[in-house]
Nucleic acid binder design. Structure first.
Length: 548
RNA sequence: GCGGGUAUAGCUUAGUGGUAAAGCUCCAGCCUUCCAAGCUGGCUAUGCGGGUUCGAUUCCCGCUACCCGCUCCA
């Protein structure tokens, strides 16, 4: 850190991603998974500090979303009071869950990529016809899978490419042929390309981790690690309603691990293959859904701001209609200016979506195709593509005197991304101009006390005159309620710096006045200011610091 | 997935075809009464696997991981 500080020119500065990674490793926040075996791409382990920080982030989210919620009062801007609760569902669910949700189709197929246009096609959706090019060489023109009329599309492509006038008929050398019947793609012209031979070999493209239930491991036993926690909530919607005496509007929250076989894990823990989500599904009457959507956008933004993220580093971005997922009526991203993003660019922190009744209807009727309103996806025989459970998802709203399938607002946050954002935002190298005349730097993590891995550090000023004994007594008492540390090694200044670097909000120092008058000094991490308080007031002081 | 770069101690660096060096950190001891003091001592490293060589941390090949730029991102 001395080296880093030496290149600092401003009064304080933010760190690069490499410096953040180095810091996380050095101070016990995050290590590369399986590091002693050379590491494993896309996986990370949380060390002593990181585990505490992540636990605090999750706990703060859970408290603010679920346990501290008052269901008797309607917050400003909402149509009504509402209830909040939580579940913890299984990582492995019935495979039909992912077929109906759309994740199987989207996440697992043989795909071919086009080098030229960068488009990706499902291998089994591509077909085309053979023809002779201008030099008389064989050329396979592939049709766009989404073209309404493949023959018309192919004729048009051939006329344009080979200069065949409208008065002449296009003469093909073959009927419509699946790409799968070709030995290689060297003579294949991709649907949107200008040159042939731009397609890759078909590659399996499965973003869900596959496993097997039972020891036999046959194809019929295949199961998947969840790619999102949300579906576990939809599957249990009826259970929660039936067993909990809840009425809508109702939010069901869940925190847990999810798994995606990302093609390119990147940027430290920003995109990893195993990650933790904090998701909530808010079930409400359809006609109020937009109002709730707006409410949750603001409330989720406020959560990050209240916990100290700088406003200038956060952006709220509403998706364009063309960006929307197959299920969403509206989606807003809360984005953060991560240090690996270019200046002025932001990366996703949390998404808030209005999913309509898509999920509940899907799990009732079967996989829905994107349409307005959504309709059942059918296979070539007209049967449902993926059958739903057949269970009734209609809610009988006695208070409103109507029955409906609830609409769902989903704030879906990444716990790891939140952790990364809080770290990046809070970590600074500060230049302290004063102090003995020489330039002095300190690394300090200005993390919110609620999130701080260690809440307080307790020091005896020196190791004599009864100070260690008094400090240990205080430490023992505080430890019952908070994660506090005791340190008597090194000079007092060195101990302050060590505490600053891992974001300890306050250092409590025992000195000779503690022994004679029962007072201690509390030193603030951010202002460096000290004040003297009564020894007995330490718990109340810390409680106020954390909870405000 | 493509291209470029990197890999020596916990961190930041040095160096060498023949016993791997330093500063910081950390630990122990002495000292120390409020912001990284000082003294003494100590622990700890060439990412993994091949090849060339009498001998490889150094040269070559492969792999892995990380960083940067594209690509992708339910």
């Amino acid at each position: 850190m001395t080296q880093d500080a030496a290149v600092a020119t401003a009064a304080s500065r933010r760190l690069s991603l490499e410096e953040i990674v180095s810091y996380c490793r050095r101070r016990g926040f995050i290590y590369q998974a399986s590091e002693i075996y050379g590491g494993i791409n896309g996986f990370w382990d949380f060390g002593p500090m990181g585990a505490e920080l992540k636990r605090n982030i999750k706990q703060t989210w859970w408290e603010d979303m679920v346990t501290r919620h008052n269901p008797l009062v309607a917050p400003a801007g909402t149509p009504s009071p509402f209830e909040m609760t939580g579940i913890d569902s299984s990582i492995i669910q019935h495979p039909q869950t992912w077929r109906v949700s759309g994740h199987s189709d989207l996440f697992s197929d043989m795909m071919v990529d086009c080098h030229e246009t960068k488009k990706r096609y499902r291998f089994d959706h591509l077909a085309g016809r053979w023809i002779k090019d201008r030099e008389g060489n064989p050329l396979f023109i592939a049709a766009a899978p989404d073209a309404p009329d493949a023959d018309a599309f192919l004729d048009q492509r051939a006329r344009k490419l080979l200069g065949i006038s409208k008065s002449r008929e296009v003469v093909w050398d073959s009927p419509l042929t699946d790409l799968a019947e070709l030995d290689d793609f060297a003579n294949v012209l991709a649907p949107h390309a200008s040159e042939k031979g731009t397609l890759t070999e078909p590659r399996e493209f499965n973003l869900m981790f596959k496993t097997y239930i039972g020891a036999m491991q046959t194809a019929a036993d295949a199961a998947f690690l969840r790619p999102e926690t949300a579906q576990g909530i939809f599957l249990n919607f009826r259970n929660v309603l039936d067993s909990g005496r809840f009425a809508l509007p109702l939010g069901i929250a869940q925190i847990g691990k999810s798994f995606r076989n990302e093609i390119t894990p990147r940027h430290f823990i920003f995109r990893s293959r195993e990650f933790e989500q904090m998701e909530m599904e808010f079930f409400c009457p359809p006609e109020t859904s937009h109002q709730w959507y707006k409410y949750w956008q603001q409330r989720r933004l406020d959560w990050y701001l209240d916990l100290g993220l700088r406003r200038e580093n956060i952006r709220v971005r509403e998706h364009e209609a063309s960006e929307l997922s197959h299920y969403a009526l509206g989606t807003t991203d809360i984005e953060y200016a991560y240090p690996f993003m270019a200046d002025g660019e932001f990366g996703e922190l949390e998404g808030i979506a209005n999913r309509g009744a898509f999920d509940l209807n899907s799990h009732s009727m079967g996989r829905l195709a994107k349409a307005d309103p959504p309709e059942l996806a059918l296979d070539e025989n007209g049967a449902p593509l993926h059958r739903g459970s057949g269970k009734n998802m209609v809610y009988n709203d006695v208070a409103r005197g109507e029955k409906y399938v609830p609409y769902v607002i989903e704030p879906a946050a990444g716990a790891d991304r939140a952790l990364l954002a809080f770290l990046c935002d809070a970590l600074e190298i500060e230049k302290l101009g004063e102090g003995g005349g020489e330039d002095s730097e300190r690394a300090v993590l200005h993390i919110h006390p609620r999130l701080a891995p260690v809440k307080a550090a307790i020091f005896p000023l020196v190791k004599k005159e009864g100070m260690p004994e008094a400090a240990r007594d205080l430490f023992g008492a505080m430890k019952r309620k908070w994660n506090v540390t005791y340190d008597e090694k090194g000079s007092i200044g060195r101990r302050y710096r060590r505490a600053d670097e891992v974001g300890v909000p306050v250092c409590i120092t025992i000195d000779d006045e503690t022994i004679s008058q029962g007072t201690v000094t509390v030193r603030d991490r951010d202002t460096l200011e000290q004040q003297r308080i009564k020894l007995d007031d330490c718990p109340a002081y810390l409680d106020k610091l954390i909870e405000g």
